[in-house]
Amino acid sequence: MAKISVATGLKTLFTVVGLLMVATLIYTLFIDGLPFRKELLTPWMAATLIDFYINVVVLAIWVAYKESNLVSSILWIILLVCLGSITTSAYIVVQFLKLSSQESSQDPMYYVLLRHPNKNDIAPQRKHSSVMTLRILFSILGLVMLGTLVYTAVTAGSPFRLELLNPWSAATLVDFYINVVALAVWVAYKESSWISAVFWIILLICLGSIATSFYIVLQLFQISAQDPAYLVLVQHGDRSENKYKGISGQAT
């Protein structure tokens, strides 16, 4: 029952935050017009957008892994790029709705995070591992964001100035932090200690995609370069793949 409550709670959470972002988008369009205006692109707005889209890269890689159909994968990623956390929330809710009652009662986060194998899958866990590629990619993204943060702070001063807070920058921050909520749920699921979970979630809130990138790199270094990269999604105790093979057996 507790696991089912988790699934229900997370479906409700992401339905609410998704609708919140839809309302924020409509309200901001109504009071401030379209966002494609040169005066809105301040140095700190540009840095926020870089921060935002690095987190989108994380979510897009997960979506690309989850979707067995190339067309649906591309469609969801385009929606992520264009609609941000509205798409993130909708996609997560859809994944929870796809769970069977048995999966919801056993470990809903596990089954939502991993792709459900089917008869048309060609043993995804046997494909060439992309662990090394992902280590390099997220190390670079983390350093890019760190460099962007330092450069913007040096050239544009502090971001904590009232004149920087316009309707579209506020909407962008809401969009950014809803994606952070999604990543924070994953971190809370992965971490066995609530102290380490709270620590990483605070870093996600304060440092954004810098913390996201380096957390992922740290997780990637906890599996070998020969392991399938999807193991980074799950808790350490589930990395034996026995559970995953169990899903495969049920699916076939």
Rank of each mutant, 00 (worst) to 15 (best):
T42G: 03
Q106L: 06
P228M: 05
F160M: 10
I92H: 02
V174N: 07
V185M: 06
G142L: 05
L146A: 05
D107I: 01
M132H: 06
I205D: 13
V154H: 12
G84S: 07
A197Q: 03
C206A: 08
A188C: 12
L146C: 07
W168Y: 09
R135C: 11
S139D: 02
A197N: 02
L113G: 01
Q235A: 02
I216D: 07
G208D: 03
K3I: 00
V154R: 10
I195G: 03
I205A: 12
L113S: 00
L75E: 10
L41M: 14
P108C: 13
S158A: 15
F199S: 10
Q222C: 14
F160R: 05
K3F: 14
T148N: 13
G157M: 11
A46N: 11
L20T: 05
V234E: 08
Y65A: 10
S130W: 06
G147C: 12
I4H: 05
Y65W: 11
A211W: 02
F36S: 03
A153S: 08
L59S: 07
T15D: 14
Y177S: 09
L204M: 13
L149W: 04
F36N: 01
L231P: 00
L29P: 11
V185D: 05
S196A: 02
V17G: 08
V217R: 10
A171D: 09
I31N: 09
D107C: 01
T148P: 07
I86T: 04
F221L: 11
L83W: 09
K98E: 07
Q235S: 08
V181A: 07
L13E: 02
Q250M: 14
K98C: 11
S105Y: 01
Q219M: 09
V56H: 04
A197G: 03
V112M: 06
T24P: 00
Y189E: 00
G18I: 05
V16R: 03
G18Y: 03
W44K: 11
V234T: 13
G147N: 11
L80M: 10
Y110I: 00
G237C: 08
S213T: 12
N242C: 14
L218A: 04
I77F: 06
L80I: 11
S209M: 05
F14P: 08
N179W: 10
A90T: 14
E103V: 01
I122M: 13
G147R: 02
Q222R: 15
A153N: 06
S248A: 14
I247P: 00
L34Y: 04
S196D: 07
V180N: 15
A47F: 12
L162E: 14
I86Y: 05
A197F: 03
L10Y: 05
K190W: 15
Q102Y: 02
F199R: 13
A7W: 04
I205E: 02
S130K: 09
A156K: 13
T212F: 01
S169M: 15
P43A: 06
I31D: 14
G249V: 10
A64D: 02
V232M: 15
G246T: 00
S72R: 15
A2L: 15
M109P: 00
M45K: 08
F160C: 06
L99N: 06
T172K: 06
K127G: 12
V81K: 02
Y111Q: 00
G142F: 03
T155C: 12
D238M: 03
G18W: 04
I201Q: 02
S209G: 13
S105A: 11
E103Y: 00
L114G: 00
L41E: 07
T252Q: 14
P124Q: 05
L173P: 01
V71T: 09
Y189R: 00
M21N: 12
V181G: 12
